Amino acid sequence: MSDNDDKYPTESGRRRFVKGVVGGAALAGVGTTGAAGINLATTSSGAGGGSTQAMAIENTAGPAPRGMPQIPIEIDSEGYIKGVWPEVGEQTEAGVTIQIAETPDYGGSGVTYSSEWFQYCGVESYAGIQPDYESENYFRSGANPAYTWQQDTYSEGDRLHVDDFSDYREWGNGIGDAGVGKPATGTWRSQDADDVIPIQVVRSERIEEAAQDDPWLQASTDQGFIAWLNKCTHFCCVPGYKQASDAARFGAENGVYCQCHQSVYDPFSIVETLFVARPRPAE
């Protein structure tokens, strides 16, 4: 089978089915990647986890069961961009006290922001997802940035800065329309950690406009910047905004596109999702 045999453009009218788990007996054996494709409301044992509501960039096409979770951001007094981590506390479950990271009514939005938003695809075992992991929470450029402008501007580990996105109203790279938004890829809460938490950031006028009358976006975005955990909810691949030349075949030239199985996300449409967060490993 060629690389293109399993890729059906939206306009073809063909419905794409993903070979995978069938039947209740098979579900019992689902591991980290398979569980990412299950969007059910139930409970799970361990440190945290269970039925979780999260704000996410909307999944609009492909096999992904839901959107990727948004990361609230703030810009410090020097212009560096960071992801906000929820407030760390303790709660008792079945007589056992565990640490949690959760902020009720985040920024007066009415939304409860929790680290459980990010507990899927094995990320729940990453050091940076542990509530008490010590981090300054800045977004940092990774080892192999996806964009030429970012390669020319940053070295690995450099903090992302608002000034480097000043041309966001005009920026383009030949994929889709110019001026939709300027992106960067990076890492979050991953300094001195074995596992890297991948993130994507976009600065766009669309976010500035949407935040004017949306309490959640007013609280979770800043100066047109929005960010999300960049792990596809289908099989845990790392998608990209304006990274793949074939994205237009699937209507994703101005969105986030996962080349693995053609899932598409809209970073300018933020929706509430319900899924089963995986428990963090017991300490």
Rank of each mutant, 00 (worst) to 15 (best):
M68N: 03
Q70F: 13
Q70E: 14
P72F: 02
P72D: 04
I73E: 09
E74Q: 15
I75D: 13
I75Y: 14
I75R: 12
D76S: 11
D76G: 10
D76K: 12
D76N: 15
S77C: 01
S77H: 04
E78N: 06
G79A: 09
Y80V: 00
Y80G: 03
Y80I: 01
I81H: 08
K82Y: 10
K82H: 14
K82M: 15
K82D: 03
G83L: 05
G83I: 03
V84T: 13
W85G: 02
W85D: 01
P86V: 02
P86C: 06
P86R: 11
V88C: 09
V88A: 08
V88I: 12
G89H: 04
G89M: 02
G89A: 00
G89T: 01
E90G: 00
Q91Y: 12
T92N: 11
T92R: 13
E93T: 06
A94S: 15
G95R: 11
G95Q: 12
G95Y: 12
V96Y: 15
V96G: 05
Q99T: 00
I100R: 11
I100E: 10
I100L: 07
E102A: 08
E102K: 15
T103W: 08
D105A: 04
Y106D: 06
Y106E: 05
Y106H: 07
Y106C: 07
Y106A: 07
Y106K: 11
G107P: 03
G107Y: 06
G108A: 04
G108I: 02
S109Q: 09
G110Y: 15
G110S: 10
V111N: 13
Y113W: 02
S114C: 02
S114H: 06
S115T: 00
E116H: 07
E116K: 11
W117Y: 06
W117D: 02
W117C: 04
W117M: 08
Q119W: 10
Q119G: 00
Y120Q: 03
G122T: 07
G122E: 06
G122S: 09
V123P: 04
V123Q: 14
E124L: 06
E124A: 09
S125E: 15
S125P: 00
S125F: 13
Y126I: 03
A127W: 15
G128A: 08
Q130D: 01
Q130F: 07
Q130Y: 09
Q130W: 10
D132C: 01
D132K: 05
Y133T: 02
Y133G: 01
E134W: 10
E136I: 11
E136A: 14
N137V: 05
N137S: 14
Y138E: 15
R140I: 01
R140M: 06
R140S: 03
S141C: 10
G142Y: 09
G142I: 01
G142W: 14
G142A: 08
G142L: 06
A143K: 14
N144W: 14
P145L: 04
A146K: 14
A146P: 01
A146V: 05
A146Y: 13
Y147W: 09
W149V: 02
Q150R: 05
Q151W: 04
Q151S: 08
Q151D: 01
D152G: 04
D152F: 03
D152M: 08
D152I: 02
T153A: 11
Y154P: 00
Y154M: 04
S155H: 08
S155G: 13
E156R: 02
G157K: 07
G157D: 10
D158W: 03
